[in-house]
Amino acid sequence: MEVTKHRHGTRKGAAHTSTRLSRQKVRWAWLFMAPMLLVLAFVAGWPLFKTIAYGFTDASLIAPETARFIGFDNFAFLLQDPYWWTAVWNTVVFAFASVALETVLGLIIALTLNAKFPGRGGLRAAILIPWAIPTVVSAQMWNWMYNDVFGVINHILQFVGLIEQPIAWTASPDTALLSIILVDVWKTTPFMALLLLAGLQMLPTECYESARIDGVHPLKVFFRVTLPLLKPTLMVAIIFRLLDALRVFDLVYVMSGNNHDTMSMSVYARQQLIDFGGLGFGSAASSLIFAIIALFTVVYLTVARVGREH
């Protein structure tokens, strides 16, 4: 009797300390997160709030304190500006074309790297090189290769006989956006390839074994087995890259400045904001970019979830 009572007592005590301990732990958790959350609120939350607020005013960069509230005027004006729509179109073309090309190329490289061959480690290192090069540097490197008179690309194409006359790749409106897309593809394909390679290496090997024994054609195996199994990885990699591409700034800015033929949404907003000093109008453009990308993300995730359930 004594013994059981005693036991009961300690168990109750232990339960009590454990809830107290866990409550204490939760308090510690918030304490540990507080500095990070404060900094994020300071550098992300507050500036985002201010940008959206400025979008409804006629503030100028030189004297932001004289701002007046003007409702949706900035947005109305923005939607009538043909240059804004060109920027939206350029960004959409850039994002979808480069991500599509990167996915295909990345998949090819990932499948290649997934095979066993001597020097595989070296190749995996080599494809990391474009990823490691700063965007500004790759923009300048390619600008030089694209140079209409002295560029190596025109030289090679003329040598092979593909073109008769040198092409002004970055200056001509027909090829300027394409040139930028190709640089982005070069720079970001490695990221895609490595993500997809990681995905490939997680796939179960049994399916492949049985397919090989049954003598199924490799292409059929790829489309019927590999691709469906790789779909979750593909979806994640594509959304990461699309969100990155939709906010593109540095590549476009360094390769062709504020040129309207290639201007992306981010370049447009920064030009209005900094070069033209339109704090209010530029902020309106920035908020709209934020809204577009947020909306796109929500739609993409919803479609992906519905796709997974079916």
């Binding site: 500036p47 985002l48 906010r247 981010s266 907003a269 904001l273 902020s283 920035s286 908020s287 990308i293």
Partner: peptide, 9 residues
């Protein structure tokens, strides 16, 4: 976040 969305703030 697109970086440009917080640029003015």
């Amino acid at each position: 976040f697109p970086q440009v969305a917080v640029l003015s703030g």
